[in-house]
Write a protein that binds this DNA or RNA. Structure first.
Length: 533
RNA sequence: GCGCCUGUAGCUCAGUUGGAUAGAGCAUCGGAUUUCUAAUCCGAUGGUCAGGGGUUCGAAUCCCUUCAGGCGCGCCA
């Protein structure tokens, strides 16, 4: 029996069934079950064959079961319901599989084959502090990159900085208004400008330090970018690259040249025939007053992404950008790229509440809770964990007061506590010179809590696969909570360090395996694993 | 009006891509510690999966429809 660490239990069972059923239907599934009445894993094979062979499912299930029951991978194979084939894994199989849990590549299912993927997220305008809504994209993108790397994608993270255009002009005008204010005049911030108090502080500082006026604009911009980068660092969200819009200005001309068969002039503006590419209407590339739109500069940027050799581009956008998907795909198709290689994940909105009351946030009006404030209040680990608990497509309600108040019962502490507990046990075992055994050599009979712990650990590769294939890190969170729950129960029901060397070393092995899986998973989602709490 | 997301226990959410008797946490009530961390464990209460129709061995999941909430529909980003 080989232990590669990335072999799924469901595949193992599938192989055995295949021995008896040569043409397995595509829809055949081996699923783990949550109800102990249905065994550990279950197959729907009989239902699928029933259709093909035009025989009752129960009959097929019975025939197959009598053959499968002979294999020592299973302690029982039973037919249930109208034809489910339910497997209870044998201790022999469990003990041999669990050994893979301490191997180097455990869970690192090779889905990516080292393909290059660029994941772009947050990409906030450099016009103010990052807010908590952008934190969701940050936590998500950060986890997704690490998850993809875990399954052997060559995934790279990138933050795109819109350092040219209308919004940066507005930022500067808003800043100048604050300078006026400092000089005792009316502030007169443009209506669409940025009203946040941070510009007041920077204006004061620039005046105080006598920053020369010709440097204001540039210094202001770099100040904003530095501020955002500092918040990201504080949050523990990392980027391999920061791409600046200003670098892609020359490429815009090439985009226009290449698109020229798909563009036309109307009312002074240059339009792209997006409606020929599945969009609902045509879109402007250059406005009547000669300014390039974001659309144009985004096309240039994405062209460059493909040029850099990335096979897939994953963008994480806010819900307000979903109307933008069709034109981007259309534009890239017109440029000659395969638009299906652009994968857009919409991270739905975050509603921030405090004591069950919605906090209304408007960036331009300067009313928002910053990322830094929330991190100070509840810490980066709890924030990431909360933000990652929901599917991206799910609207997220986040009550600050609640997150702070219940921090003692917060699921992130529950998981971290399991990790800290294990370290404490292993420390004691180490003092007593007890080492862990190789469990495949053991003939032990697992107790129920040990059995459950083994089962969930060897399921880790399947969870990783599901999360990575669907770009859904939240599966990892739920897995962690389940794993911690089962570990805590194990801890309560059996003692690890005892006088019985043989039992102790087997249980220490289980502790080490649990610790390893918790640590790997926490690392993917970007949450720390404390040695003690 | 059109498009996207959502509707599952009192609250916040999962639900293995169509599987069996729909699950967690929080909240509420009741228990457990001379033993490796009680930030833990055990038990109880709690459901018309928004409503209706359809597809089939089988639907919270797929299709149609109605209702409700959020977001988007600029020569803004």
């Amino acid at each position: 029996m080989s232990h590669k660490g990335d072999i799924l239990i469901s595949q193992r069972i599938n192989q055995i069934i295949k021995y008896y059923v040569l043409d397995l239907p595509d829809k055949h599934e081996i699923v783990y079950t949550t109800n102990p009445l249905f065994g550990d894993y279950s197959s729907n094979i009989a239902f699928l064959l029933a259709k093909i062979q035009d025989r009752p499912a129960i009959e097929i299930a019975n025939e197959l079961t009598s053959k499968l029951a002979k294999h020592d991978e299973f302690s029982s194979v039973k037919v249930a319901g109208k034809g489910f084939v339910n497997f209870v894994l044998s201790d022999k199989l469990l003990l041999s599989e669990i050994n893979a849990a301490l191997e180097q590549n455990f869970g690192r299912v090779d889905l990516g084959k080292n393909i290059k993927v660029l994941v772009e997220y947050i990409s906030a305008n450099p016009t103010g502090p990052l807010n908590v809504v952008q934190a969701r994209a940050g936590a998500f993108g950060n986890a997704l990159v690490d998850l993809l790397r875990f399954v052997n994608y060559d995934a790279v993270s990138e933050f795109y900085i819109n350092n040219t255009g209308t919004q940066t002009d507005l930022l500067y005008e808003s800043f100048l208004a604050r300078i006026n204010e400092f000089n005792g005049k009316n502030a007169d911030i443009p209506e669409q400008g940025y009203h946040g108090i941070y510009l007041q502080d920077i204006a004061k500082e620039f005046k105080k330090n006598k920053v020369p006026e010709e440097k204001w604009r540039e210094s202001l911009m770099s100040r904003m970018i530095t501020m955002q980068k500092h918040s990201l660092l504080n949050f523990g969200v990392n980027f391999a690259n920061f791409a600046e819009e200003s670098n892609y200005i020359p490429l815009r001309e090439l985009v226009l040249e290449k698109l020229k068969d798909f563009t036309y002039r109307k009312e002074g503006a240059l339009w792209f025939r997006a409606s020929d590419f599945n969009d609902t209407e045509d879109r402007v590339l250059i406005t009547a007053n000669g300014r390039p739109t974001y659309f144009l500069s985004d096309l240039a940027y994405h062209w460059d992404k493909f040029d850099r050799g990335f096979e897939y581009l994953i963008n994480i956008w806010g819900p307000d950008h979903h109307g933008y998907i069709a034109r981007m795909k259309g534009g890239l198709t017109a440029l000659g790229f395969d638009a299906s290689k652009l994968i857009i994940i919409i991270a739905q909105q975050v509603s921030l509440l405090r004591n069950q009351e919605k906090i209304v946030m408007s960036k331009r009006a300067g009313e928002f809770i910053t990322l830094d404030e929330v991190i100070t209040e509840i810490g980066p680990d709890a924030l990431k964990f909360f933000l990652l608990m929901r599917r991206a497509s799910q609207h997220l309600e986040f009550d600050l007061a609640l997150a702070k108040k219940t921090s003692q019962e917060n699921p992130v502490y529950y998981v971290q506590y399991a990790y800290a507990r294990i370290n404490s046990i292993l420390k004691l075992a180490n003092e007593k010179n007890i080492n862990s055994a190789n469990l495949s050599d053991m003939t032990m009979t697992a107790t129920e809590s040990e059995r459950n712990l083994i089962k969930i650990i060897i399921r880790f590769p399947e969870v990783i696969k599901m999360a990575a294939n669907n770009y859904e890190p939240h599966h990892l969170i739920y897995y962690l909570i389940d794993l911690a729950t089962i570990f805590h129960k194990f801890y309560e029901s059996v003692r690890v360090v005892t006088n019985d060397m043989r039992t102790s070393s087997a249980r220490i092995f289980l502790c080490r395996a649990t610790r390893r899986v918790i640590k790997d998973t926490l690392e993917i989602i970007g949450v720390s694993a404390p040695e003690k709490m």
